[in-house]
Amino acid sequence: TRKKMVIPGVGEHPLQYNYTFWYSRRNPGRPASTQSYEQNIKQIGSFASVEQFWRFYSHMIRPGDLTGHSDFHLFKEGIKPMWEDDANKMGGKWIIRLRKGLASRCWENLILAMLGEQFMVGEEICGAVVSVRFQEDIISIWNKTASDQATTARIRDTLRRVLNLPPNTIMEYKTHTDSIKYKESPPSLLFH
């Protein structure tokens, strides 16, 4: 078991897990290698209670107000928001692409569901990401075991419920091993 670095204060409501906020931003036009990804990602801080969460969140910029190529990551304390982390390497993520204007509300609903243990998949959830891009925004939720179809189906159904998305919203599940393969050798079709 991981050592808990922060504890709930007196009178506060403890969370099932401690979490850490991270922020990353990529300089335009510079492809990110694994190393530079790790260097670009900054820890904002960790919390153990509902009240500590709000103290961070209330002072953070809303994703919809971010510019450029930026991401907020909220992961269980001790799990790095990277494919290579032991908790993530056999895992995958549900990805939802959002038209501009929806990211702030969807991100808040997603992380409140995660902190409140709404997904009901035991230890499976690793964390969540909101990625701000030029044309669209992307939210994703990462879990430990990509091959566990009962878990991934339950996460999908919970996402549909808590995000209250339009019925035509496309949800895509991607394993991290596919993401790594794709990054290392993109399908040749792309270049025909």
Partner: peptide, 21 residues
């Protein structure tokens, strides 16, 4: 073991607590 479950409304209500500021 038991899990600590909170719904969205409860979490949003906690935002107004003096402890959350």
């Amino acid at each position: 073991g038991t899990r600590i479950i909170y719904d969205r409304k409860f979490l949003l209500d906690c935002r107004n607590s003096p402890l959350a500021r």
